Simulated scan of single mutants.
Amino acid sequence: MSDNEGHGGMPPTDDDISLPKATVSKMIAEYLPEDVSCARETRDLIIECCVEFIHLISSEANEICELESKKTIAPDHIISALKRLGFENFTEEIQDVLKDHKQQQKDRERKISKFEKSGLTEEELLRQQEELFAASRAKFQNNQQ
């Protein structure tokens, strides 16, 4: 049974929810001097603290969301939750990350729109791509001789 299946088809419990250990270990290593390592128990405790923090912020954001009669937690609900819980110093960085995320979404949408505006089918674009690859290979092979 995989970690995300829960127990016998049941929704995951709090014990099933975690963060990727390898990713957390990598992040911890980035903050520590090279000659200092982090014990596995320490890493696991940090993960537990992170999960608890996420639960706390999520619960508070959910309350704010319900007070506004909304059905979806929005970024503003998270920012308000951070402020209500005394984490105002996190909000500026969160807003910067949100701004970057929105820009990445716009860039992605622009690429999709560019594809749609081309008027070509995916098959036609793939054919053109293969032709470009073939021409590039031929040019490379001619330069090798």
Results as ranks from 00 to 15, higher is better:
M1Y: 05
S2H: 09
S2L: 11
E5V: 04
E5P: 00
E5R: 07
E5H: 04
H7K: 09
H7V: 08
G8V: 11
G8W: 10
G8Q: 08
G9E: 03
M10F: 14
M10P: 02
P11S: 01
P11I: 00
P12A: 06
D14Q: 14
D16F: 11
D16L: 04
S18R: 14
K21I: 11
A22I: 13
A22G: 15
T23G: 12
V24N: 13
K26F: 06
M27N: 14
I28C: 10
E30C: 06
Y31E: 13
Y31K: 09
L32F: 07
P33G: 03
E34R: 12
V36F: 08
S37G: 06
C38V: 08
C38A: 13
A39Y: 14
A39Q: 14
E41I: 00
E41N: 01
T42H: 15
R43C: 03
D44T: 14
I47L: 14
C49A: 12
C49D: 07
V51T: 07
E52Q: 05
F53V: 07
I54N: 02
I54Q: 05
L56G: 04
S58Q: 04
S59I: 05
E60L: 11
A61C: 09
A61M: 10
A61R: 07
N62I: 00
N62R: 03
N62K: 10
E63G: 01
E63N: 08
I64H: 02
E66S: 13
L67T: 01
E68M: 11
E68G: 06
S69K: 10
K70C: 06
K71E: 06
I73C: 08
I73V: 15
P75T: 10
P75M: 11
H77F: 02
I78F: 00
I78T: 01
I79G: 03
I79M: 08
S80I: 05
A81L: 08
A81Y: 00
A81N: 09
L82I: 00
L82H: 10
K83L: 00
K83V: 07
R84I: 00
L85E: 07
L85M: 10
G86Q: 09
F87K: 08
E88F: 03
E88W: 01
E88D: 10
N89Y: 01
N89I: 06
E92C: 13
E92T: 14
E93S: 09
I94E: 05
Q95F: 08
Q95L: 08
K99P: 11
D100I: 11
H101I: 05
Q103N: 12
Q104L: 13
Q105G: 00
K106I: 01
K106M: 01
D107P: 04
D107C: 08
R108G: 02
R108M: 10
E109S: 02
E109K: 10
E109C: 01
K111Q: 06
I112S: 05
S113M: 03
K114R: 12
K114A: 12
E116T: 02
E116F: 08
K117V: 08
L120I: 02
L120P: 00
E122R: 05
E124L: 09
L126C: 01
L126E: 15
R127L: 15
R127Q: 12
Q129V: 02
E131R: 06
E131G: 01
E131F: 00
L132C: 03
F133Q: 08
A134K: 12
A134T: 09
S136T: 03
R137N: 07
F140C: 12
N143A: 14
Q144A: 11
Q144F: 03
Q145C: 07
